[in-house]
Design a binder for these strands. Sequence first.
DNA 1: CTGAAAGCGCTTACAG
DNA 2: CTGAAAGCGCTTACAG
Lengths: 349, 349
Amino acid sequence: MRKKTKATSVDIAYRAGVSQATVSRVLRGSPLVNIETRKRVEAVARELNYKVDRHASSLRTQRAGCIALLLFEDPTADESHINPFFLSMLGSITRACAKHGQDLLVSFQQLSDDWHADYENSMKADGLILLGYGDYLAYQSTLDRLVEQGTHFVRWGAVLPGQPGVSIGCDNFHGGQLVGEHLYGMGRRKVAFLGDASSHYPEFFARYRGCGVALHDLGVVMDPALQVDAESSEDAGYAAARTLLERGQPFDAVFAASDLIAIGAMRALTEQRLRVPEDVSVVGFDDIPTARFTNPALTTVYQNTQRAGEMLVDALLRQIRDEPVESQMIPASLIVRKSSGTPIADSED
Amino acid sequence: MRKKTKATSVDIAYRAGVSQATVSRVLRGSPLVNIETRKRVEAVARELNYKVDRHASSLRTQRAGCIALLLFEDPTADESHINPFFLSMLGSITRACAKHGQDLLVSFQQLSDDWHADYENSMKADGLILLGYGDYLAYQSTLDRLVEQGTHFVRWGAVLPGQPGVSIGCDNFHGGQLVGEHLYGMGRRKVAFLGDASSHYPEFFARYRGCGVALHDLGVVMDPALQVDAESSEDAGYAAARTLLERGQPFDAVFAASDLIAIGAMRALTEQRLRVPEDVSVVGFDDIPTARFTNPALTTVYQNTQRAGEMLVDALLRQIRDEPVESQMIPASLIVRKSSGTPIADSED
DNA sequence: CTGAAAGCGCTTACAG
DNA sequence: CTGAAAGCGCTTACAG
């Protein structure tokens, strides 16, 4: 004897002996209701297990009460695995949404998809959170369009002047600096960088520049011949390290633009009988859960994803309410583990 | 000059010189439209960047076109980290939903929350996917209620006779058998089990029983004194291994009910100067991404999460369409790595 | 093949 | 404090 028909506000009104409008007021928490009336309506609603119909409500108010999280990746990325760093962001975003009473729609997109128009125009979501590594220049025009259409969105990524929309991101430049200083402290002078280092990948680029500037300030120049492009995946890291090795340029440290890259690179190095960290220091970025368990454990840069998720949701909600919002950075901090080695008294050069 | 007002079907109708009803037919793909008319309407819709309002549409059709994924955990679980196994399920569920043109609402719940009524009664979602480890008996009554209310849902978990609703799960029993046989093959005779082994945690229990039966068939009895309760977390695994050690009963293998437990257990064993796998074989369950990287690399049981995600979504969609649906199991397969050791010619007993 | 009209279940001015 | 009424933007029988 299952109830096929869900209760509506009219049913509640009938049973509580009030008008449907009053039921609606009660359920919206309007102050314009007598306390007695309110109690009666609430009791009936609870009894009939009544929930406000979201679509009717949203249609009327023109608010979805929902945020869409768009996770996109380069089409080349491995289909089956999602970058664990984004997964952990997803976790904290979900929690932050719950805290603000917002629902969260999750979707994976290809960078090439026509994702820009869908969610807000169809009223599915009041705003968008954009998350993903990928070629920045390739989708900058899409961001411009979003701004132009008045779509509410925040982006996780590089925080740079003159960017369309609002971004929340890690202080990648400072993170890179920390790595550069640390590697210098370990006696390393020939630091390779694995990861795209161009404005196509502004986050990686900032990490690269940060490291370069730190070393420069210490009197060391990063050799461009020791930089190899790589997107954020283990396979790309492996391939990049192989390329680096084939170039034959000597190096004593690898700064990988992400932990995934670092893991792949360590595999390539080990295969070539190079010891980490004795022969080569390796440092990653992101502090994914696996980083503690690599062999040797990976020195890396930590970003507080919990915090980041909250800031993204906060910024978006503020934007939806037409409040002023600024792009912001969260701090980076270095987590020293075994893979970067122990200080070397005398450097080789 | 941003458009504050989104185009509606009336706008499209006006510009295309047809009735609003016809616009709706075109956008729903009704065959009852002249091809010329259709083209004209589509052109205008595209030009105005028109998307059907989801709420209006859903209100009318009484379908959300959306599925809700409810991820729940024991309240005791660590706030910040989500079980990586479920994260990877989330990934495949998201993809499967996209393939079926369904949106996906994601939410974390505490086992104690009042999650049962919300999503479908409020019409937010046409059905629910339930995902999570936790005390089964504690929420069985909730499942009963869901069934009684006619809520559409599928559950990831143990597949047992007489369960409310439909479940998709791994063949945990067989997975356990594989582990038992493998450990026996490694010469192990005193196998400890870390993880709850009662009907409160049917998945863990099935793994335990599978292992026990396999060993029994080989003439070995699992000692109940070597079983220690643990929920699926690293800390719980660590604590359970400590408890096991304190009991002073000799053991030469640990079957951990999940990889997270195994990782924590290995830490505890190593701290006590026990060598893995020389002194103790360790086997986990789930094959989370980190399993390849533990030291030694973790032997574990793999479940195809890609497949599982598709099956969950498929089953739910079928149920929503009132088609018959059965509970199903996906196969388990053993992944042998270093942590279970190399065969020992002579066993100790 | 097309249009006029009813109605999905709410929210919120408006009037009292 | 409460009710009657309009209307959010669609979908779909119904009539033609």
